[in-house]
Simulated scan of single mutants.
Amino acid sequence: MKRLVGLGLVVAGLLYPFAVYFGMAHFAPWQFGLLLAGLWLARALSEPRRAGSHWMAAVAIGFCAVLALLDNPALLRWYPVLINACLLGLFGLSLKFGPPVVERLARLREPQLPQAAIRYTRQVTQAWCVFFLANGLVATALTLWAPLSWWTLYNGLIAYGLMGLLFAIEWLIRQRVRGRS
């Protein structure tokens, strides 16, 4: 169930800009809010309880509640900004309170990381923080000043392309770093 809910959130996130662009003629903002809130609530309920593990879901559900209550189509465009802010918070706070997110992910595959790998994962986490900040700022600018078509193109396609590019660049760098070790 947990994987199904997680997959639902990923698919909803990927399709969200297009759903907003094509769906606003057929659905009210409160319907988007209820659907997203339901997915985030299901995620929160299906995850194990750990300290601080549900804050992102709580923020997203709060946003969805505001969206549903105000039923304002302009609010629909702020969701990508919210997600980037939450991811920036997650990655940034992991740098301060540790271990960094990328280190945690690396330890799933290799529990005993060498010191050089720990430093590297910290740098990668910092790079993701820069990405989420820049991506969130672009999403904010498009939300405030661009037509819906530009917002949809960036948040539904270009932002994911940039994420893929960052993943690819990091993978290439990691291969070089590992080759030197």
Score class of each variant (00 low, 15 high):
Met56Ala: 15
Arg107Ile: 04
Gly52Met: 07
Val102Leu: 06
Ser46Cys: 10
Gly161Asp: 05
Lys2Gln: 12
Met56Asn: 03
Trp171Lys: 13
Gly23Asp: 07
Leu9Arg: 15
Val59Glu: 06
Trp30Tyr: 11
Trp151Gly: 02
Thr140Leu: 14
Met56His: 13
Gln115Met: 11
Val66Gln: 02
His26Phe: 12
Ala44Gln: 08
Leu39Ile: 11
Leu142Phe: 10
Asn135Leu: 05
Leu88Gln: 06
Ala37Arg: 04
Ser94Met: 03
Leu93Asn: 10
Leu7Arg: 02
Ala42His: 00
Leu162Ala: 13
Pro29Ser: 09
Ala51Gln: 14
Ala159Cys: 11
Ser94Ile: 07
Leu14Trp: 10
Tyr21Pro: 08
Gly62Leu: 10
Ala85Met: 09
Arg77Gly: 07
Ala168Arg: 08
Leu113His: 11
Ala106Asp: 04
Met163Cys: 13
Glu170Cys: 10
Tyr120Ile: 10
Leu165Gly: 14
Ala146Thr: 03
Pro114Thr: 14
Pro147Ile: 10
Ala134Tyr: 07
Ala74Glu: 12
Leu142Val: 12
Pro48Cys: 07
Val10Gln: 05
Val124Ser: 00
Gly156Tyr: 04
Leu113Gly: 10
Gly164Trp: 04
Ser149Leu: 12
Cys129Tyr: 01
Val66Glu: 01
Ala141Ser: 12
Leu4Met: 13
Ala68Lys: 02
Thr125Asp: 00
Pro111Asp: 08
Ala127Arg: 00
Trp150Met: 14
Asn155Ile: 09
Leu69Ala: 15
Ala28Gly: 04
Gly6Glu: 09
Trp145Tyr: 13
Gly92Ile: 04
Val177Ser: 05
Leu14Cys: 02
Arg104Val: 11
Thr140Val: 13
Leu162Gly: 03
Ala58Arg: 06
Gln126Met: 09
Thr125Lys: 00
Ala68Phe: 09
Ala12Met: 11
Trp145Glu: 08
Arg174Asp: 04
Asp71Tyr: 11
Ser53Trp: 10
Ser94Lys: 10
Val124Gln: 01
Phe63Pro: 06
Cys64Arg: 08
Met56Pro: 07
Phe97His: 14
Arg119Ser: 12
Thr152Arg: 01
Trp55Lys: 05
Ala168Leu: 14
Leu108Asn: 08
Leu82Val: 15
Gly23Tyr: 07
Ala159Gly: 02
Leu166Pro: 00
Leu4Ile: 15
Trp40Gly: 01
Val102Gly: 00
Met24Lys: 15
Thr140Met: 08
Arg3Met: 07
Ala19Leu: 15
Phe27Trp: 14
Phe63Glu: 01
Pro17Arg: 06
Cys129Leu: 07
Leu172Ile: 14
Phe97Met: 09
Gly136Tyr: 00
Leu39Pro: 01
